[in-house]
C-alpha cells in the first residue's frame, strides 16, 4: 500500500501531545509529553494501569482529556476532532465488531464511515482480507469467528481507509504465530512507505525488534524514551534485553 493521501511530507509530526492529563479519581495520565515522527513505529510500553490505553483513547478522541493538547498532523484534535479522526485508525485490544455482519460487509461499512469511495473500498477490502487469510471467510458472519479472526477483521477495518496514523492497542493478543507474523509484516510495510504506527504491547520482543523508538510509561508519566540502544545505554551496563531495561526502569525510575 502506498503512502497515504494525507501524506504531509516533512510537515508537522503525526502526533504531538503536550501536558496531557486525565484522572479517574487518581491520575491515570499525568502531564504527558509525546512526539511521534512521520514514518516511525513507536512502541508505548508500561506495566498494567500505567496509562497507555487511556493516552491512546484520548488521542483517538474516545476520551476527553482533563488538560493538555493533542495535535495530529498539526491539527488540534480537541478543537477539530473530525479532521484529526480522518487521519487516524484505532485498533482496540478487544476486537468488538458486528456479529451479524460478514467481514466484507464490516469493511465496507467502516469504509463508508471514513467516506471511502465504494469501488476503492471493495478493492482494499479484497486486498486486506486476502493478505490476512480471511478472503475465503468473506461471506461468513463474524459471530462464527474465533478471537484471532475477529482481531484480524478489526485490523483490516482499521486499514481500509489507509490511515497515515495507525494506533494499535495490544494488536497481537489472541493471534496465532502465523497471524502474529502477518500483522507484524503489515505494520512494517506501513512504516516503510512513510505511514506512522503507534502500538502498545506486553510482548517486549516485538517492541525490541520492530520499534524505531520506544516510550516507557508508568503512573501516567513518560519515564524514558528513545531507541532501544539509547534506552539500554540509559539504563546502565548489563541490561541486555528490552525486558531487562523495562523492568529496571519501571522498578527504579529515579535511576533514569
Amino acid at each position: 500500500m502506498a503512502a497515504s493521501e494525507f501524506d504531509t511530507g516533512s510537515g508537522p509530526p503525526p502526533l504531538a501531545v503536550r501536558g496531557l492529563a486525565k484522572a479517574f479519581g487518581r491520575p491515570a495520565v499525568d502531564g504527558l509529553d509525546l512526539t511521534v515522527h512521520r514514518g516511525e513505529l513507536y512502541a508505548l510500553l508500561g506495566p498494567n494501569g500505567a496509562g497507555k490505553t487511556t493516552t491512546l483513547r484520548m488521542v483517538t478522541g474516545l476520551l476527553k482529556p482533563d488538560a493538555g493538547a493533542i495535535r495530529v498532523f498539526g491539527i488540534d484534535a480537541l478543537a477539530n476532532p473530525r479532521e484529526a479522526k480522518r487521519r487516524i485508525a484505532w485498533v482496540p485490544d478487544e476486537p468488538l465488531l458486528y456479529d451479524k455482519l460478514t467481514p466484507l460487509e464490516y469493511l465496507e461499512f467502516v469504509a463508508s464511515l471514513w467516506e471511502v469511495a465504494p469501488a476503492t473500498a471493495r478493492a482494499r477490502a479484497e486486498e486486506l482480507l486476502t493478505a490476512l487469510g480471511l478472503w475465503e471467510q468473506r461471506g461468513d458472519r463474524c459471530e462464527t469467528f474465533s478471537r484471532g479472526m475477529k482481531q484480524k477483521t478489526v485490523l483490516a477495518g482499521a486499514l481500509i481507509h489507509d490511515p497515515p496514523l495507525l494506533i494499535l492497542d495490544e494488536p497481537l493478543t489472541g493471534l496465532d504465530a502465523g497471524a502474529a507474523r502477518l500483522v507484524k509484516d503489515m505494520i512494517e510495510a506501513r512504516t516503510a512507505v512513510g505511514n506512522t504506527v503507534i502500538l502498545t504491547t506486553h510482548i517486549l520482543e516485538v517492541a525490541e525488534r520492530l520499534a524505531d523508538r520506544i516510550g516507557i510509561i508508568a503512573h501516567g508519566r513518560l519515564l524514558a524514551e528513545g531507541t532501544f540502544a539509547e534506552l539500554r545505554e540509559r539504563a546502565g551496563e548489563g541490561q541486555a534485553t528490552l525486558e531487562d531495561v523495562f523492568l529496571q526502569l519501571v522498578s527504579d525510575p529515579e535511576a533514569v
Partner: peptide, 21 residues
C-alpha cells in the same frame, strides 16, 4: 460455531455516505 455463508458479493453496499451507511 458452525459457519453461515452469506452472499459474498456486496460491493459498495453501504455507499460512501456515512449517514446512509
Amino acid at each position: 460455531t458452525g459457519r453461515r455463508r452469506r452472499r459474498a458479493t456486496g460491493s459498495g453496499s453501504f455507499g460512501a455516505n456515512a449517514f446512509r451507511a
